[in-house]
Nucleic acid binder design. Sequence first.
RNA 1: UCCUGAGUAGCUCAAUGGUAGAGCAUUCGGCUGUUAACCGAAGGGUUGUAGGUUCGAGUCCUACCUCAGGAGCCA
Length: 433
Amino acid sequence: MVSATIEKIARHVGETVELKGWLYNMRESGKLLFPQFRDGTGIIQGVVSAKDVSPEVFEIARGLSQESSVIVQGIIREEKRAPGGFEISVSHLESVQTVSPGDPYPIAPKEHGIEFLLDRRHLWLRSQRQHAILKVRHEVIRAVRDYFDSHDFTLIDTPMFTPAACEGTTTLFEVDYFGQKAYLTQSGQLYNEATAAAFGKTYCFGPTFRAEKSKTRRHLTEFWMVEPEMSFARLEEVMNLAEDFICAIVERVIANRRAELKTLERNMAPLERVQKPFPRLHYDDAVKLLKEKGATFEWGGDFGAPDETLISENFDRPVMVHHYPSQVKAFYMEPDPQRPELACCVDVLAPEGYGEIIGGGERISSYEGLVKRIQEHNLPPEAFTWYLDLRKYGSVPHGGFGMGIERCVAWICGIEHLREAIAFPRTITRNYP
RNA sequence: UCCUGAGUAGCUCAAUGGUAGAGCAUUCGGCUGUUAACCGAAGGGUUGUAGGUUCGAGUCCUACCUCAGGAGCCA
């Protein structure tokens, strides 16, 4: 007996194969059953005819409830009437575990509320839409790794436990570290600066944690971030990298995950327009643009979500906004030599209202400059001794950026909420399942 | 933390202050090409919690709880 997967079922037309999976749904019509099977790679309709199988097998098939696990044997046929275009004519069927009708699978093929679904996220992952999103996520992550691996970056992952903040301590998760205070990382960037000085070009990729009390579709308390860092790089090179990187990811997902994007009913036109060069907008000009659009915005502030949408809707592809005022950015941003009140930084705003997916820039390379900033931000200097060392022993201009994986996936999938872009989302109100 | 909205059957939702309802799901019956199949029947309720107003509260009032959307902050 040939074992087959639904994803590659087309190559088995005419053959009798064995499928191992679960009952996705079933329609029945008297002595004819139409079970739909899924195996993790796809969904295929089966047909069980009472005249073609033993009465015992027919009864087992008829008694299957949604998500019962099964092993099915049958001939694969092309069948226009079947969703997906292929069908398995079941000759034998074995139930591995039949879901009890007294406690049926809770996620029926109909609409459900979000709280109900999130409480059953461990089961919700089996549905087509969630499956498609997580397949895209996997493709994005593969593209990210392939991109950096093939551009001479070395992967060096950074710690989750850290002794101090990169930004404010209010947004840090504090943990007890054998009697001492430690914090879950918000970013691997400071460590990336050390590894970049050791290896030239590096990146880290892992979960990050923010204890922000944000209750919006754009926030998770635990999210995955990829952060490249380059020695001897200026803002210009950071922007070039961000642009090339995003194009590579989008191109790769379009090439390999078209079926999933179709399942998600993603409008492909805006994705296909993601080509170099991206528009580059100086902060001054972004403020000017906001004022032209009638927004009440004062120079010097950071953009809120509605501001980002107003800016990005003027462009048909991601837009790079650079040179924000230092006061709204992290302490380690390199000041612009011509205008020290501005930081050599860049945010990449995704189109279609998805907002910031990348933030980055050039880091301060001078020892004195960094000490001054640490003081201004009231950060504990002893925690940054090692970080300051990087400015004492062969300091160079360097920079990089961070990209939030879930924001990128949500944008590419065209989904409303970040919580669907990760298998088990952690938000301010959710730490289960 | 603030603003707005919502909690009724397993799920999604109805119900002028006057007998608690439908569809889906489940069970039983019917149907040999179904497409969220369809047709018939059955079971299924402390209306988020605690008070209050009223002859009478799912409905009105107060407090609290939970969730959702948004703001601030951020990727």
